[in-house]
Design a binder for these strands. Sequence first.
DNA 1: GTTGGACCCTGTGGCCGCTACAGGGTCAAG
DNA 2: CTTGACCCTGTAGCGGCCACAGGGTCCAAC
Lengths: 139, 139
Amino acid sequence: MPLETPLSIGDLASATDTKVETIRWYERVGVLAAPARTSGNYRAYGAEHLERLSFGRHARDLEFSLDQVRDLLQLADDRNQSCDAVDRVAREHLEQVERKIADLEALRHELRDLIGQCRHGTVAECRIVRALAPDRGAA
Amino acid sequence: MPLETPLSIGDLASATDTKVETIRWYERVGVLAAPARTSGNYRAYGAEHLERLSFGRHARDLEFSLDQVRDLLQLADDRNQSCDAVDRVAREHLEQVERKIADLEALRHELRDLIGQCRHGTVAECRIVRALAPDRGAA
DNA sequence: GTTGGACCCTGTGGCCGCTACAGGGTCAAG
DNA sequence: CTTGACCCTGTAGCGGCCACAGGGTCCAAC
């Protein structure tokens, strides 16, 4: 049954909105399995490659790391296993995202403070410059 | 008046909580001016280097880019100029941070949705896996 | 049958902001 | 005079690609 015409790397790229170089990169780092080659040494992809690359791209859109994508793909292969491991990967990622949001919110607060102090005078009296100067970092 | 004993790169590093390699890196990319050298070719820093590196590190703590740090340092030199340019750099950075927070909040929402659908069954019926699979990305 | 252009191949270098070596030189204390 | 802490340059690596250069392949039109 796998007699459909194989996909070239360019076909796969446009089907998944991925750059050709990215697909080759995924192969290099073990996210996408190396496909068969034609007589002219072109990569020849099948439907399963398309499926896995789509999966991976969706995961990357959600900013899972490539390591996590590899893990998720492997987990998704064991159709009969519990999906708790999948859940765990997703939760870990969510926690990271939440931590990052908290960090950035703190940063936003500091920047707003800084900017709020600007009196639009000269640099010599600039609060922003002064706030960044030595011995004022913690203040 | 610049007759104080100069600082070695290690002194500067511990004074600013910066790795030695990072200081050399800042020199390479033009964030910190190359200092004088001793007879043994050691870098010999003065008070002005300490000041500028402290400034730069504070700015980096606030996640200004190195490009922005370079700009801020240059702006901070023109003591008589208006500090509007400084203000502009800070506002630009704040906007970037706010955009990133918004992006991550949207991401958090998607991830929570995804995880909330997990019924802890097998991978075959896993909602997370299914959500990532082809033709379900936008749903 | 050949020519043109669209595609493909590998390999390398660049982006950001460092960090971590390797393989040496320098210097002060004991 | 040796030890060990420091310093030097240069290079490679992280993540996740992107963009070449310098070639090969393929198909269709002429």
